[in-house]
């Protein structure tokens, strides 16, 4: 059982968007590498996530107008694209969070009933 706990999990469809939005909301503007690092920290390396797979989520969110990317410089003086939550993004985050809570509560309730 404990062995199974350590196995990486697959992300549910659509949850990556929520996670990225949430990360940007709490951490402020971030570049892709920072977002990926943050994800790994938070998930305690449980997320099986190639860092490249973040990119489709980023372009999608940018096209929705929920985040906005601008080029800037890192502390180590490297160029990187920083993503920032927009107003619409904040609103979407709230909505998606609600949605997720309702969804997970539902699944939780079902699982409790089963046992």
């Amino acid at each position: 059982m404990s062995n199974k706990d350590k196995e990486p999990i697959q992300l549910l469809q659509g949850t990556l968007d929520l996670i990225v939005l949430r990360t940007l909301a709490t951490m402020g503007p971030q570049h892709a590498y920072q977002i990926a690092t943050r994800l790994q920290q938070v998930s305690d390396r449980l997320l099986n996530l190639n860092q490249g797979t973040l990119y489709p989520a980023l372009v999608r969110l940018e096209q929705y107008g929920w985040i906005k990317g601008t080029w800037g410089r890192t502390e180590s003086n490297r160029e990187a694209k920083y993503y920032e939550l927009t107003k619409a993004g904040q609103k979407a985050l709230n909505e998606e969070t609600q949605e997720w809570r309702r969804m997970s509560a539902l699944v939780e309730r079902l699982l409790l009933e089963e046992s």
Partner: peptide, 14 residues
């Protein structure tokens, strides 16, 4: 995109 990926890899390397 090329530039962004390059930056990402550079940061990882660092």
């Amino acid at each position: 995109l090329e530039k962004e990926i390059g930056a990402h890899l550079a940061l990882l390397e660092d």
